[in-house]
Nucleic acid binder design. Structure first.
Lengths: 199, 199, 199, 199
DNA sequence: GATGAATGAGCGTTCATTCAT
DNA sequence: TATGAATGAACGCTCATTCAT
């Protein structure tokens, strides 16, 4: 007697489901913290069933990892690209800092999650941040070999450089993601004075 | 309406209990992470009853807070003392960095816990690290007013300085708490180049 | 970050589970009192897992409420039906008293629970028994307007009538649920003398 | 150097301590319900130590019992006195009802507790209210033997009479303990119609 | 006698994971 | 493939009771 229309089923294809899953998990992880978010609650917000989450990720930790690796990968890739363009090391630092904040802006929620997460997470035992620091280390090594970067223990120098980046990003986040350009310049400035050899 | 019974009755002095509690909590928190440690397990290792934990701390979070505040307080106090001795800013930076690593060495397990904990914890809404950064901010401001520190947004500069310290300490911990003096010098070196005005 | 495992997997239809849950809860609540019954113990007797209880009821109190509301609802409905049949008020009282004891007999375990429970329970702040008393109040009001019931403060009269019913039922329960007809007649007798206008 | 005065120690003699204990227990039991009040909380309000509570009462249940027995005893004693004065049964009912509400008014907090408590409590297995009902039973029996009270099963009649009293008192309490005289008259009125033989 | 720190069984509730449908 | 009901171990926390002081 009435016309039956199929209920609109959102998120039919797997990739849209995965996207919804990521969006929901990201929102809840950053708001409440990983441990205080349940799979059921994520699934509900994503509009999928609990069991379906386990089609995408082996368990809750793998879901977190996927998100952290995603942002960390973007940071590393961006640094590589910016660094690879070559030019004066001073300019490279400008470019790299700029690139980092571009990613930060694009993916600020992921960045938030990233800074909230310090427990051991990756399968190889690496901690979040290690990939970024490794990239910094490679660049520092190259720069040091060229005489452009100050000498010192490579690990310590790159760890401090990494800390400097984190400090700048923490501040930028607390400012409400405003003035990305200025933050980038500030970071690059201290980087140059602190790590480049004068002249 | 149910009748309950109890059994033995250890009695040591409260401070030795509190110390045992801290030691057990510290060990387990740093090893497994706050969320994965149960009060029962801490109490067991400390040789006290579960209920006794709650005589010392209102709840599990307060126990964590006490430990974090303790180390953070020590860092801040040490910085104040070293800074207050006066002298050239360059020398002050040396002293402060040295002092920080002295605390780090004395209390390396607490430091580990400190770096593992990023969730919001204090009652006033402050995050772990905020008190340290505030102290850095005060010192930076003074130095900037005296023309000894580079100009820039006070918040951003102190946040980056804070990051630099954290980076150095993370590296030092990964090195197995070795070469405290060298680490301190490395940190002070980058600090001077990065934040002090030349001349 | 902990991995959990589960074991067997019973599967019966939800309604048989709910019935088993009610039966177990009813038995234990009446035997030991609400506060002295644990969810674990109910679940065990009902042959379901602890967590499954929480699929049916939000928490322990909601489980109790469901049982109390169920019996209270039956009492009220029965009274409404019997009263609505009309006829002489004397006959209506007979019918209502008879109906109440019919319910009491059918659901004597629930009645027991009902009489054991006096703390505030319903979401709207009502106490168990309030719905029954409200129904009595409505009937009394109608009867008083028709000149069939003695005048007096409506609230007080219906509260006393309610007490009378409770008194009769308490006695009937203590007698072992025997002689339902006689108990009903006794109650109706006192009701008539006490509340109906003579002639 | 300073003058030492002994801290004012309140509640020195045992009876004032017991009184403070009763007052605190009464207040908390009626406000939160027996099960939701802790001995520690009562002791604190009473200004005594937890252990001291156990000097007065063997356990928490005995404390509750003492309070219930106290009010129940007063009710029973008052009824006996009023009934023993003799006179017409109609007048005796007036006197008894009046006496009951006098007690209720004097000890309304205890009455509240009394009506909140239905679990089995006394050592002999009696329930709260049983002593009152027994007294009613005795009076009813005497009245029935004298032909003044309606015939019927003694237990049932006295249980209903008891219920009537409870109903009236519940209403009176909900009214805020106002109009004690009127409540008493209302109760006596229904009592007479319902239980006395006419003429 | 009075104290209150200490005890630990016991509670209500959560939630990662599984698997029958 | 997707679902979500079911599981039960595990948790943080409470509190009646005891007993050394």
């Amino acid at each position: 007697m009435s016309v039956q229309t199929s209920k609109p089923k959102r998120t039919r294809d797997p990739e849209s489901k995965r996207a919804a899953l990521h969006a929901a998990a990201l929102r809840q992880f950053t708001e409440k913290g990983y441990e205080h978010v349940s799979i059921a609650s994520i699934a509900k917000e994503a509009g999928i069933a609990v069991g379906t989450v386990y089609r995408f990720y082996e368990n809750k930790l793998f879901l977190l990892r996927a998100m952290l690796e995603s942002i960390e990968h973007d940071f590393v890739q961006q640094m590589q690209e910016d660094w690879a363009r070559g030019g004066a090391y001073e300019d490279r630092l400008d470019a790299v800092c700029q690139g980092l904040f571009d990613i930060a802006k694009d993916r600020s929620a992921y960045l938030k999650l990233f800074t909230m997460t310090t427990d051991l997470v990756y399968e190889d035992g690496a901690l979040p941040g290690d990939r970024i620091q490794d990239q910094i280390k490679q660049m520092y090594q190259e720069g040091m070999e060229q005489g452009a970067f100050r000498n010192g223990d490579l690990h310590m120098m790159s760890s401090m450089a990494h800390g400097l980046v984190e400090g700048a990003m923490m501040r930028w986040m607390r400012m409400g993601h405003k003035a990305t350009d200025i933050a980038s310049k500030d970071l690059a400035g201290v980087m140059k004075y602190g790590f480049l050899t004068p002249g």
